[in-house]
């Protein structure tokens, strides 16, 4: 399954990473060499194998639905890339 330039542009759109034509060509080359190498997995018959989704055999634990940290708005907003003491600021979303 070769990956063409159109697919690279499509993946970059899905990944929300803009790429220019030059970068897309480089990625096309890299991804094809990586996936050609990955294809060797098809040598294995895995029809009857259960997928391994997690190494941890324990069931996820439940915890009390309790607030552990309160009044930390200022801390949370501290690393906000656009300064505002009350909200996170984003470009206009609704026209």
């Amino acid at each position: 399954m070769a990956i063409d330039l159109k697919t690279v542009k499509h993946i970059s759109k899905l990944a929300r990473i803009s790429v220019n034509d030059e970068k897309a060509k480089k990625l096309e080359k890299d991804l094809n060499s990586i996936f050609k190498w990955i294809e060797q997995l098809n040598e294995l018959n895995t029809d009857k194998v259960e997928p391994l989704t997690s190494i941890a055999e324990t069931k996820l634990r439940l915890r009390k639905d309790k607030i552990l940290s309160e009044n930390i708005r200022d801390e949370i907003l501290k690393n906000s890339p656009k300064d505002n003491k009350d909200y996170f600021v984003v470009p206009k979303v609704v026209e």
């Binding site: 997995l41 098809n42 294995l44 895995t46 194998v49 259960e50 997928p51 391994l52 989704t53």
Partner: peptide, 11 residues
């Protein structure tokens, strides 16, 4: 999904 199955074989 294929990779998760091979991961099982490796384990």
């Amino acid at each position: 999904l294929k990779a998760q199955k091979v991961r099982k074989l490796i384990k």
